[in-house]
Nucleic acid binder design. Structure first.
Lengths: 275, 275
DNA sequence: GGAGCGCTGTATCGTATGTTACGTATTTTG
DNA sequence: CAAAATACGTAACATACGATACAGCGCTCC
């Protein structure tokens, strides 16, 4: 079974003429980067002419050069998705077998945060803190609990935090309360819910700032969102995992809380005295 | 110091107009693959026009699109050279707020699973699967969303799954429906809620099997529970983290689903046909 | 040693791609 | 509310890129 282009080359390099073989060796030497550049650059690096490169990729079975490049990119993408970073997750001491699902979940978190800067989180936290408006939270069929979780915490440190529950018609009626100063936090992962998209669009039209938690394929709501957090959700299971998004939500909660504390919000102190 | 394009984007995304921000978000979401494709494909993926993509890369400081792509490729090449992940999260500028929390969360998960054997999880999954009784789920003030999350998933693959919501008096009345064949899943971490403990005790007296998700200090409910899952919750934040428990819940959901599928439960097939 | 075949490079062509100019829509500001 | 500024998309444009035709060269085999 041949699954990568590198293997394909190794398989056929024996039957190639000299020029194409040089092309093959050049590609293998700095695999796969040189293959992503132009034919001219590739040919220059290999010390052959452009047509030789094209004949080379044709021999590998590709119809044309772009098709060859796409194939290389797909390979790269797959490689990046499942990072060969297993070494970072120490092979669980104590002999306890750690399930592939835990591995995948930890990888998802690392990947998610690799694309998520402190700056971005700080921006979102700032938006949640620094305003005189209200905060609304809502989620999809399986992600609504995440909205609830976040709402439960934020409501402690801030006034005017509302979780939108129940029927679509119920929250649609709440639109009337929303305006430019308000923030709407939406959780939406595959399969994306039309009802949420409709709601998001209407809220957007009213000038509401939307913060979207979604998966790496981006919910259609991303088009209306001011801030988008894309978390990895793939795990070896029948279900998608929201764990990475959950962790991001917790961090956001923490960031907001910290910022409010720093501002010396007397609400926090009052809260303590109420206990 | 800004070393990667991803950081560059994170740094400037705040100052970008809406269209370019969508471009930025799309790139980050599947970083960096979409940036290696053509402008047309990039623009289509982001849902904006080609010129917007070009203005986006121009704002990042590149003279033209090919230069931007070369830069991405160089970055990729460097990353592939040193398989060890270098820049998981650059030492966060301005007080390192995120990374320690992420590290703590990941540590929590590893610790949690170190004390949690596959056997234990399998036993709990089996108990949730192999019975003719009902499943009830409930949580505390901040953990109830986890109960909801689990209930939302289990209810899809099984009949008779109920989340207990609302007032204490409401669920107390549901006790009448509970018996020896039933399972009650409770989430309770510090500060433990008296109301939950009272409820758990009464359920226990009726012979209900209790599965408890709690923290490492164990909720008082542990004395009534048949199965106890103790997750680590400590993070450098004002709040405790439920992330580890969340992951355990997801794994349990996955295990139950897998087992039901293996049993060829026709419910799953019927479910598909109902879509 | 000569003829045939195959490989390779040069030069040209067509086209897909990035680029730019301009008009419209949207937002911001006084 | 009006006016200016900014942002965005449509459409025309230029170029750089991949593709192809053809000629030269070397190699092999008779």
């Amino acid at each position: 079974m041949i699954s990568s282009i590198a293997e394909l080359i190794a398989d056929r390099i024996g039957t190639m003429p000299a020029g194409e073989r040089r092309a093959a060796q050049t590609l293998i030497a700095s695999y796969p980067m040189i293959g992503l550049k132009t034919v001219a650059e590739f040919s220059a690096a290999a010390g052959v002419s452009s047509p030789t490169i094209l004949r080379f990729v044709a021999r590998l079975g590709f119809q044309n050069y772009p098709e060859f490049q796409s194939s290389l990119q797909d390979e790269l993408a797959a490689q990046l998705q499942s990072p060969a970073i297993r070494t970072l997750n120490p092979p669980s001491p104590g002999g306890g077998t750690v399930s592939p699902m835990l591995e995948a979940t930890l990888d998802n978190m690392r990947e998610t945060f690799r694309h998520l800067s402190d700056r971005q989180l700080a921006d979102i936290a700032a938006r949640l803190v620094d305003r005189r408006g209200k905060t609304f939270l809502i989620g999809g069929r399986f992600t609504d609990p995440l909205a609830r979780y976040m709402a439960a915490h934020l409501a402690v440190v801030q006034p005017d935090v509302f979780h939108l529950a129940g029927q679509e018609s119920t929250w649609r009626d709440r639109l009337i309360d929303m305006g430019k100063r308000d923030v709407l936090v939406i959780f939406d992962i595959r399969r994306y819910q039309d009802s949420l998209a409709r709601f998001a669009e209407k809220a957007h039209q009213r000038g509401v700032q939307i913060v979207l938690f979604t998966d790496q394929w981006l919910s259609p709501i991303a088009r209306f969102a001011r801030h988008v957090i894309a978390g990895r959700t793939a795990v070896p299971s029948a279900w998608d995992s929201s764990a990475a998004l959950f962790v991001v939500a917790e961090m956001l909660i923490g960031a907001v809380t910290r910022q409010l504390e720093a501002e010396g919000a007397k609400r926090i102190r009052e809260m303590e005295s109420l206990r």
